[in-house]
Design a protein around this nucleic acid. Structure first.
Lengths: 244, 244
DNA sequence: TGTCTCCATGTTGTCTGACAACCTGTTTTT
DNA sequence: AAAAACAGGTTGTCAGACAACATGGAGACA
């Protein structure tokens, strides 16, 4: 319900301006090194106060999209100066973009599994086995399984990320998975009875678990890659995603 | 020289405030859901004007660290609401953190190589072969090789990322590699004559190139993982990184 | 008593104007 | 010709005001 209020809240003027400006830079309307219009003229052309423009540009500076010098002006920064990585929420809803995001996740999770195989504790393994059993039971329960399934799978792979011991991997996967799950959930709701691959999927997860159990780094990372690649193909085969 | 001017330029007040606030949130001094002090009181306690505080909070909102509601207040957002991934520049200089960043890169580049093997064009392959030859010659030229070596290696792997056809992978690796290279360069300058592994390193690159040439997805991704894992070990073995 | 309306209060969102700090090119002075 | 002072423009910071909005409480009413 909180997400509802957030979605329905109208964006601030600074949101609008920063989005428009960053779009201009990302799409190349403003070339690297080029000088931005002055804050005053931006304020006039957008029809807002200078404080709003400043908040927007402040965000761009923080992302390394813009570099400003007092007394001179603000300039589009070199692409190599980018200091933040973000994915527009809209991209998670676009079929093609989502598949690319899944590929990115595959690489990182695969690495996480390899590291987890090396560094896992017994408690990590216990937790993963428990999550696996949840996964198993959720898969044999027909329709309502999908929601539970997503939860169990998330718990399983999140623990793998944590067992990797790599703080950046944990954070980044958490950010990606949260929004991927959100999107997958809305897809899953539309057609809930996709249970034809159950035993295959389960075997793929099991392969991951087994590799981590016996601390086989390469096998673990390959098992994750194998599962996620197939999962992406299964998703791509379904026709209920927007084609945009 | 531009980087010099940037580094020496004194940070704005908004930079300071946003850094302090985000630190407080990331380190857990402010729990999720907790209400931030009012802009007025923050302005007083930091000794700045309210506009400065607003610019800082505007950044935090953009990163999904804070969520504000007009008429009510600003609140620390749930970790699951994070919408941007950033790595503090200081972390690239810390031995342990840098190694974790390298692991993250390994996973993504490995995935990129697999995709590149599938989707590469002939032009991609030509470019990679040329970069490989540059790599080869730079490795057999003694001291000054390190700088050229870094450049050639960067070109090689950057082209792999581009050949993957995945925009997110391209952008993210570009961001990571730019800053990793910057750090590696400063290390390489300090002791330039590390040439003992030359033939091994070259063989590792060659394995990547060959796998992509014959479009062997798994071999390509494993070859990258193999090289980068060893590269990280070689770096870790060197004692000239700060231990912090 | 219980409920509903209205309002006072506090907070964020936006606007305006002003001045400081700084850079650049021009003019003036030496 | 070189150096110094000046003028104009831009970003950085400050202060104050009002609008938009949410909340809780006082009071009216059933």
């Amino acid at each position: 319900m909180d997400s509802f209020t957030r979605l329905s809240r109208r964006p601030s003027l600074a949101d609008d301006v920063s989005q428009k400006l960053s779009r201009m830079i990302l799409e190349g309307d403003l070339a690297a090194g080029e000088q931005l219009p002055t804050e005053q003229s931006l304020a006039e052309s957008f029809g807002v106060a200078r404080t709003v423009v400043r908040e927007a540009i402040s965000r761009l500076k923080h992302d390394g999209l813009v570099d400003s010098r007092q007394g001179v002006g603000a300039f589009v920064a070199e692409p190599s100066a980018r200091s933040a990585f973000r994915i527009s929420p809209a991209c998670f809803e676009k079929r093609q973009k989502l598949l690319e995001i899944l590929q990115l996740r595959t690489g990182i999770t695969s690495e996480a599994a390899g590291l987890a195989a090396l560094h896992r504790s017994d408690a990590d393994l216990d937790f993963m086995e428990k999550s696996y059993r949840d996964l198993e039971s959720s898969l044999f329960k027909g329709d309502e399984g999908t929601e539970k399934h997503l939860l169990a799978e998330r718990a399983f792979y999140q623990r793998i990320a944590e067992a990797s011991g790599n703080q950046y991997i944990i954070e980044f996967l958490s950010m990606l998975d949260t929004r991927i799950d959100m999107e997958l959930r809305s897809v899953a709701i539309k057609n809930a009875r996709v249970t034809e691959w159950n035993s295959e999927v389960l075997a793929e997860h099991m392969a991951v678990l087994e590799a981590i159990r016996r601390q086989d780094e390469n096998a673990a990372s390959q098992a994750v890659r194998y599962h996620y690649t197939l999962a992406a193909q299964r998703l791509a085969d379904r026709a209920d995603l927007a084609d945009t």
